[in-house]
Design a protein around this nucleic acid. Structure first.
Lengths: 170, 170
DNA sequence: GATGATATCACCAATGATTGTTGATTGACA
DNA sequence: TGTCAATCAACAATCATTGGTGATATCATC
């Protein structure tokens, strides 16, 4: 993504004000390769600014998304994740247990809809999502919470389950 | 998916009772290739059973999912969709405007994580999601609501927008 | 056919992620 | 320096989904 300075200039150009909170969030996103959730951006920002509110984080992230400076991913993990890496086309590795997301830089341009199978769709792009267990969860012996494709993580049972495992972890 | 009779037997074997509601839902799913949402299953079921409740539909769909008879998909469209087609491995075409999902039977077994890029993940499977505009939305001149990958459809603004378009459509 | 365990109903409350509202205060920038 | 946007805290609302209630209905079994 763009540097803090570039984003600052961009915001000014668009008539938005550049506050300390916003710069703090820019900074947090800058080095982040972990596809943070709004919540984790908030936590990181609070390390620098005690009082920054979750609301402000959401607002700024949405502004960045609207300006096309970050991507918003809904990969079926129950929460949106923000991806500051827009420079290169990439795909994702998603942990079935903790929902962690990693970039995967690989060329899948050969992955296309076979002719005649497009069902009348005007196909824009392809996303490849690999699901599995991340290193951390493997070591901890965590079991996948989502057995099936794009498992429905919004289901309360699974969310409860995930929270329970996070508690155990402490 | 299994026939109504097979599901009936299966439910009995598991100590579950087979009610008229459940058989109604089995029947609805039977011929459905559209990856219905719980809501649309409910509507279809109500055509046959006036009084069937959304709660019962959710419950039965979840039981079917727990028994591995249907798959639950969260493809970033804001609502879970249920896929009765488990016989063959397949991927999906998702409409960026209305959220409609179509099966795509294609072999992407050559789509794998390049060696050395697995980031410590124990990779289970790959899903390929093609996004675009379905035939209906193209004809209606609908614009995509989700410009980016797995666009965050849980955002209120987009949900409102989608409802608005559905209203217009009537 | 009687019995007991489940399902279902209607209704209402809760969940979690996200957004809206309000009113007061702070801070950016021309 | 004045103005308008941004922020705050606090609280309510949203949507899809699940939980709880108590009453009624119905399945499976004897």
């Amino acid at each position: 993504m763009k540097s803090v300075e570039e984003l600052t200039a961009l915001f000014r150009r668009r008539g938005r004000k550049v506050t300390a909170q916003r710069q703090c969030i820019f900074g947090v996103l800058q080095g982040d390769l972990s596809h943070p959730t709004a919540e984790s951006v908030h936590e990181a920002a609070r390390a620098e600014m005690e009082t920054i509110s979750l609301k402000t984080v959401y607002q700024t992230l949405n502004e960045l998304a609207a300006m096309g400076e970050v991507a918003v991913l809904d990969l079926g993990t129950g929460t949106s994740r923000f991806d500051p890496n827009l420079e290169s086309v990439h795909h994702h590795l998603v942990c079935r247990s903790c929902g962690k997301v990693r970039d995967l830089h690989a060329d899948f341009s050969n992955v296309t809809v076979p002719t005649g199978s497009d069902e009348g769709f005007e196909v824009g792009g392809a996303e490849v999502v690999f699901r599995g267990l991340c290193g951390d969860c493997r070591q901890r012996g965590r079991r996948p919470l989502r057995p099936l494709a794009h498992g429905a993580t919004r289901h309360r049972a699974l969310q409860t389950h995930r929270r329970a495992q996070q508690e155990i972890q402490k």
